[in-house]
């Protein structure tokens, strides 16, 4: 048995025991937007009829063009914004507001600039009222996890973009939320750092088993990281399609990114985003090796 097959089987076994972590039911969010020079405010729909169930420990990415409501969804999931209609349940409990069971990582890092790396990571622990004696051990653990040993006492303005984002991730993980919400976290770093951070994120995810909801507008990133990809439609805030990404894990940059399976899914997502619906309604992507679905000759 090859390693790839072994991993697939383990995954299938895991799935049968999966709990549903997050349930989003009929979610809609409308904004009243008044432009300059207009008398009446217009209704702008950011999200419409959003329904999804996210399994525990799943890595879900949401991809879509700018302004399609992805960030609005994340705000609602974080409890920072109230939906116009619909509900969100986490662990079968109705979501009412922000809490320490979810962590958020934003594109702009949002590190408190007057606090050192360690103090930033301990911020959530202070809110959680973790006893002071335990805080150092926890922050040490996550500093090690994101690979910033030796930088504990630096201020954010002494760090590079990639390092700042690692601190943001460590801060979100430190108080042990079960769900991690990430809003284009790697959008502000350069391409090489981005690849590095993607690998590290997957490594951290595999170690900590959090449920991750990751927003991006990079199709490449969305497919590379995810178990499932939610493709949003351009202007109506609706889900276009949810695709399963059956590529084996762990995903190494070299192998996966050049594989036909990966590129087929990317192609699929790209066509969905560019509104070419007709082309893949012909093909149904299921648990079969996607390369085979295209043609047997592409299977390696």
């Amino acid at each position: 048995m090859t390693n790839a097959n072994k991993i697939e089987i383990n995954e299938i076994e895991k799935k049968s025991e999966d709990n549903i972590k997050i349930v989003v039911e009929n979610l809609s969010k409308n904004f009243s937007v008044k432009s300059l020079g207009e008398k009446k405010a217009k209704e702008f729909t950011a999200l419409k009829d959003f329904n999804i169930q996210v399994k525990e420990g799943e890595f879900l990415t949401i991809v879509g063009p700018s302004g399609c409501g992805k960030s609005t969804l994340l705000d609602i999931l974080a409890g920072l914004s109230k939906p116009s209609t619909g509900e969100v349940y986490i662990d079968n409990k109705l979501l009412k507001g922000p809490a320490l069971d979810r962590g958020i990582v934003l594109q702009g890092y949002a590190l408190l600039p007057w606090r050192t790396v360690r103090q930033n990571i301990e911020f959530g622990l202070e809110i959680k009222k973790t006893p002071k004696s335990e805080r150092k051990a926890i922050s040490d653990k996550f500093i090690g996890l994101v690979g910033l040993v030796g930088f504990e006492d630096r201020l954010p303005n002494e760090l590079s973009g990639g390092m700042k984002q690692r601190v943001a991730i460590a801060r979100a993980l430190a108080y042990d939320p079960e769900v991690l919400l990430m809003d284009e976290p790697f959008g502000a770093v350069d391409a090489q750092t981005r690849d590095l951070l993607q690998d590290e994120l997957l490594r951290i995810w595999e170690k900590t088993n959090k449920t991750i909801i990751f927003i991006t507008h990079s199709i490449d990133e969305a497919v590379f990281l995810a178990d499932r990809v939610v493709v949003m439609s351009g202007n109506s805030g609706e889900i276009k399609e949810i695709l399963k990404v059956d590529l084996p894990r762990p995903r190494n940059v070299g192998d996966v990114r050049t594989s036909p399976g990966f590129n087929w899914i990317k192609h699929h997502v790209s066509e969905l985003l560019h509104n070419n619906d007709e082309n893949y309604k012909k093909k149904v992507v299921s648990n079969v090796d996607v390369a085979e679905a295209i043609s047997p000759s592409t299977t390696i």
């Binding site: 409890g79 507001g97 922000p98 320490l100 934003l106 949002a110 911020f123 809110i127 919400l181």
Partner: peptide
């Protein structure tokens, strides 16, 4: 910086904590 406020709010801080730990130092 509203991003800082957003990050703190996402952890469910009270208004007092927000003021003491974010607004005043900033």
């Amino acid at each position: 910086d509203p991003l800082l406020i957003k990050a703190a709010l996402s952890m469910g801080v009270t208004n007092f904590q927000l003021f003491r730990k974010v607004i005043i130092p900033a």
